[in-house]
Every structure is written in C-alpha cells, then in structure tokens.
Design a protein around this nucleic acid. Sequence first.
DNA 1: TCACTATTTAGCCAAATTGCCAAATATGGG
DNA 2: CCCATATTTGGCAATTTGGCTAAATAGTGA
Lengths: 108, 108
Amino acid sequence: MDAKTQARLTMRANVFKALAHPSRLLIVEQLAHKELCVCQLREMIGADMSTVSKHLSVLKGAGMIQDEKRGLQVYYRLKMPCVLRFFDCVGEVIETNVKEQWELVNLR
Amino acid sequence: MDAKTQARLTMRANVFKALAHPSRLLIVEQLAHKELCVCQLREMIGADMSTVSKHLSVLKGAGMIQDEKRGLQVYYRLKMPCVLRFFDCVGEVIETNVKEQWELVNLR
DNA sequence: TCACTATTTAGCCAAATTGCCAAATATGGG
DNA sequence: CCCATATTTGGCAATTTGGCTAAATAGTGA
C-alpha cells in the first residue's frame, strides 16, 4: 500500500472512528433535530460534563459538528448532515445480523 | 439514556468501529470489486497474514463480509454493499475539512 | 472586583486495540 | 501418512481510548 493510499484511508478511518462510540452517536442523532448546548447533551447522555466535552471535541475534530458560544453556553450543531444517511445502512446491517443469529439459534 | 437506547447505540457504534481502521477500509474497498482470498489481501495491505486475518474477523463479526473456504484458501466477499454508500459522505466531510484548513492557513 | 455557572483541559488509571511471533488447525498432493 | 501451504488462534508489548476528578478558562451579574 503506497503512502498516498495509506494517508487517504487513515483520514477516512478517522471519520468512522469519530462515530464509533454510543455517546457520540447519540450526540449526532440529537443534533440532527436541533442545536443543543453541552449541558443538555450531558443530561441526555448521563455522563460527566468533561466526558461529554471530550466526545464533542472528537466529533468537532473530525469535522462533523460546529460549535458557537452564546453567553455561558456553547451550542453545537450538525455540520455534515450527510452522516445521517449512514444510519439506514447501519440499521440494515444490524437487522441482517440479528436475523441470522435468530435462525442459527432455531436450527434443529 | 435508558438501557434500550444504550443497547441500540452500542450495536451501531460497533458497526462504525469495524470500519474505523485504514486496513479494514482497504479490505472493504477491494472486496467491492470482487472476492479475494486472505493472501491477496495480505499483499495489498502489506501486513502479517495473522494481522489481516484478525481484521477480516472483525469485519465478519460486524456482519459486513462473508467467507467461503475453497481448497486451501478462504475467499472473502462483501456482504453488505450498502456500506459503500458511506464513502461519498466521508469524502465530502474530509474535503470540507481540508478546504477549511486551507483557508485558515491563508488568513492574513 | 467577587462569586457563580458553563465549559474545557490536564492528569491519571483501567480497558480496549493493534500488530507481531509462534503455535495450532485445516487442506491437498505425493 | 508426511509434507507443504493457507489460515486462524493465543499470547504478549506498545499504543490509544474512555471516563473520572481536579484545576483552568471564560462569561455574567451584583
């Protein structure tokens, strides 16, 4: 694998990595509806605020969300709504997996 | 976050986690064209065969690829081609990021 | 300025990931 | 059966990630 391909794939992998955590997926889902501040996301996720802040910085670092400070709060919003299209296929993958496992269990 | 939501998000995150590695992305890209055996993928990736095998088992565990043993070789193929649709958006995200960084650098 | 709130950052530790080597497993050919 | 090849598995060290607490930073209002 040449260096250029390696670089391209690493950048892409980083985008997926940003989505590879339940809390970060919840953040993306919620921001799909409307912008939210850190404290609102903290409530939804139920983790320490510092933890949520770190998750947000991961998503921001990957270019998926934007932040804007207004008064004391920092509001985040989805910058790349195209990532929402991922979820259909992800759901399809999971559905297929579960179906197959179900059939495996019912073998006789 | 209730347990059901947590479970749903964890399953989804696992699908993204499976794609969150350069070598595994290369595997998915290559299998999009045609099925390949481990040794062919090993050449493309340039890592130890055991390493490639482990990557393949991650993708298989996530339900993204299928394997079939024929003779000495094990051939893998893409089971969920819908994941290829991800790549358009991922490319868009990266393009936007790079564009913004470029503009930042050229500020004066 | 001082106190208060919202957020980020730093530091720490546990857990997960990655990649190699070596060993185990499976298959095909003499 | 014996040997060679293809693949998987187990084990280990190095690195990364995740989440907490505590400290630092920033904005608001008295």
